[in-house]
Amino acid sequence: MRLWVRLTWVELKLFVREPVSVVFTFAFPLVVLVVLFGVFGDRPSSAFGFARPDDYYLASYMAVVIAAVSLIALPVHVATYRERGVMRRLRASSVPAVTLLSAQVLVSLLLVATGAGVLVAAGLTAYDASLPVDRADAVLGFAIASLSFLAVGFLLGHLARTARAAQAIGMLAFLPMWLLSGAGPPEDLLSDGLQRVAELLPLTYAVRAVREPWLGHGSDTTALAVLTLMLVAAGGLATRRVRQL
């Protein structure tokens, strides 16, 4: 327990010392969101399914924070540990794999929650955005999206050969998903081809899992099902990979 607390604390400090992670988790979503608030305002619009654009984007950016932590911060961190033999060193000192894993999951969740909190605070105070309509369902969507994306992040970190590769793959996954998942232009403005591409992107489902209940349309069960499937698949593969080490 003493070890677990120390490990969690160290993990948290290491994260905060990594500029790329901090920028993508806190600054990037906030800056883009502020720009979008400025461009689209708060008048309900048909392009957003007659929702207010500020609510629409605030809800969508919850998922962008999840993706930033899971695809940019976490894989590099995990891959660095592997590449530099930190995991082996911990194992040689009898630190159980679950202790490290649970510390990393907790820290990641904490970051996701903090990043999301920053956006909500900004949206509610500096702008006129509103809290979710179906609060419990929005939180559920957020939780499932977080877990399933973190599982993908761990898997990526364990599969990538080097930390640099993990960073490149993470960025490559993050940027197009961010633009096409509903966090960029509203889905209705995308061409048919791009809409079809968007349907294949996991982030689209994370966005919907949070945004639909947020805007009062109830839970998006398809999105929740896709995310759960992703959680089981990626989580299973990542666990198997860790056991092999």
């Binding site: 070890l3 290491l14 530099r84 930190v86 000192s93």
Partner: peptide
């Protein structure tokens, strides 16, 4: 086997000594 670049010396010792 190395340590994370941004880990401080005292943090490494503190962490590893909490193992046993």
């Amino acid at each position: 086997s190395a340590l994370p670049d941004r880990l401080k010396v005292w943090e490494a010792l503190d962490l590893f000594s909490s193992i046993s």
